[in-house]
Each structure stands twice: as C-alpha cells, then as structure tokens.
Amino acid sequence: MTSLAQAIPPGLASIAGARDAITTNEAAPIINRRPQTLRKWACLENGPIRPVRINGRLAWKVADLAKLLNGGE
C-alpha cells in the first residue's frame, strides 16, 4: 500500500513542506491553473477539489492536490 508521503509529487512536497494546506497562489501553478480559476471553483463549488478556510482565507489541502495530480478526483 502506498503512503500519502510517497504519493505527493516532488514539486508539491517542496512547496508544502510540513503544511497540510497551501494558499491559492501556491496551489494554482502546481495544477497548471490560474489563481482566479481556483477561486471560482471555491465560489461556485464546481471544481474537482474543494478548499478549506483558514482565518477566512482559502487554502487547498495538499492531500487533495496530490490526489488530483496523480489522476484521481
């Protein structure tokens, strides 16, 4: 069975460090989208992943980004 640490792509791991979630501006280039696209996904609730809110700001779970990058939804 593959652990989550092995499933996280190296580029994502280097940006995330030890954090569980990253900002919109950090997440967008990883999945080859513009930050506004991620904000639209959050607003319309129609994207392949959903954000969490930390202190009123959008954050994207590293696990969800890794799953998306590895072909899952």
Rank of each mutant, 00 (worst) to 15 (best):
M1V: 12
M1T: 05
T2R: 00
T2V: 08
S3I: 02
L4K: 00
Q6H: 09
P9N: 14
P10I: 11
P10R: 15
G11I: 05
A13R: 06
I15M: 11
R19H: 10
D20G: 11
D20E: 08
I22G: 14
N25I: 15
E26Y: 15
E26G: 12
A27Q: 03
A27R: 02
A27G: 06
A27M: 06
A28L: 06
P29K: 09
P29N: 07
P29H: 06
P29G: 07
I30L: 02
I31E: 01
R33M: 03
R33N: 01
R34C: 05
T37H: 02
T37A: 05
T37S: 06
L38D: 00
R39I: 02
R39M: 05
A42I: 00
L44T: 01
L44F: 03
E45H: 04
N46M: 06
G47N: 04
I49S: 08
P51Q: 05
P51W: 09
V52Y: 02
R53D: 01
I54M: 13
I54G: 08
N55R: 15
G56V: 15
R57M: 12
R57T: 11
R57G: 08
R57D: 08
L58K: 04
W60F: 14
W60S: 10
V62G: 06
V62D: 03
A63T: 11
K67G: 09
K67Q: 13
K67M: 07
L69I: 13
L69Q: 15
G72C: 09
G72D: 15
E73P: 09
